[in-house]
């Protein structure tokens, strides 16, 4: 017990989830260096700017999925909520609505989905896998229904075209301080939710519920409310990404966000947020999302086939989870003295 105070670095690394983040961060730096050796354009300014914008979506939904995973649940409806949010906004704008109310309607629909997910899991005790699989299908259905199963026309050509144009620029095409707004949006969201997770009572309760629901309940934590909050955050993040996707494409596509929930899991898990709950920090999502996007972008730049890229990225996800499991069981299996 005496060493405890002597080694601040060791202590920092053993703090909640930091170890995995640092390990993966080192991996990320090596990865970037390797890509840059193979193709020197990789770290040129133009590509870096693009890269940051490609990271943003995975940060945004990685935050949401991370919240839910920390409570030892999962949200499979994220991708569909992205699609639903995108389709609602685009359809309303194309039918002559101003972007502001259109976005608000999408927000309400998304939050409602989060509330339903949370209630089904927390109050009706449905397995999260099944409950959110259900809402996944429903939300995709809504995304298809709103415009009769068709993609919408361009939103900039609608009645409030100018406002729509401003929206697309703000959320996707414009830069602030040399960096695309999309990345800033992701960063702001991250800062807010990281603060909540690390420094507030709600955050502490999210960890407690994921670590040991029974213990949390017996300590007077409102478990249902905590799980509900996690799902609401997740759906909110999905809504934001839906808005970004709508701004990017300038139309609503019925299959927008398809299978994004798994990418969100990947971003969280690579960054050390365990699917078993109770561990991980939101900085992990930043790193995880970066690994994901860097692999995507880098493999493309060095001319790898899409199929091969998918195989490699899949292997990385499994590798990171294995790393996490080894670290955890290494600690649990041999109880240290």
């Amino acid at each position: 017990m005496e060493e405890k105070k002597q080694n601040p670095i060791k202590k920092f690394l053993s703090a909640r989830g930091v170890g995995q983040v640092v390990t993966v961060l080192i991996g990320l730096v090596i990865l970037c260096a390797v890509f840059n050796v193979i193709n020197p354009n990789f770290l040129r300014q133009r590509n870096v700017a693009n890269l940051l914008r490609q990271i943003a979506p995975w940060i945004i939904i990685g935050i949401g999925q991370g919240y839910v995973l920390i409570t030892a649940n999962i949200d499979l409806s994220i991708g569909s909520v992205v699609g639903m949010s995108c389709m609602i906004i685009a359809t309303l704008i194309c039918n002559g609505a101003h972007p502001v109310p259109a976005v608000l309607v999408a927000l309400v629909a998304s939050l409602a989905t989060g509330a339903v997910n949370g209630t089904l899991v927390a109050n009706f005790k449905l397995p999260p896998f099944v409950a959110t699989l259900g809402t996944q299908t429903i939300c995709r259905g809504v995304a298809q229904l709103v415009n009769n199963n068709m993609n919408t026309d361009g939103i900039t050509g609608a009645k409030f075209g100018a406002a729509a144009k401003a929206m697309t620029n703000f959320f996707y095409y414009n830069k602030t301080l040399g960096i695309f707004n999309t990345f800033w949006i992701a960063l702001v969201l991250w800062a807010i939710f990281n603060f909540v997770l690390a420094y507030t009572r709600t955050g502490r309760h999210l960890y407690a519920v994921g670590s040991n629901t029974e213990a949390a309940k017996l300590s007077g934590v409102n478990v249902s409310l905590t799980i509900l909050k996690a799902y609401m955050v997740s759906s909110f993040c999905a809504f934001v990404l839906g808005l970004v996707v709508c701004a990017q494409t300038g139309t609503g596509t019925t299959n927008a966000g398809m299978s994004y929930e798994t990418y969100a899991v990947a971003a969280s898990v690579i960054g050390g947020i365990s699917t078993m709950g109770g561990t991980g920090i939101l900085s992990g999502v930043l790193v995880g999302a970066s690994v994901w996007a860097v692999m995507d972008n880098g493999l493309q730049m060095i001319g790898t086939q899409v199929g091969l890229k998918n195989v490699v990225v899949g292997l990385i996800v499994i590798g990171c989870v294995l790393l996490d499991v080894v670290r955890r069981t290494g600690r649990l299996g041999k109880r240290k003295s």
Binding site: R16, R204, H205, Y207, A208, G210, S211, N212, A215, A216, S219, G220, V221, G278, T279
Partner: peptide, 13 residues
């Protein structure tokens, strides 16, 4: 809660 510290457990809730 195995993943929380001693103090965090003591003040949980």
């Amino acid at each position: 809660c195995q993943h929380l510290t001693v103090a965090e457990n003591m003040f949980l809730g």
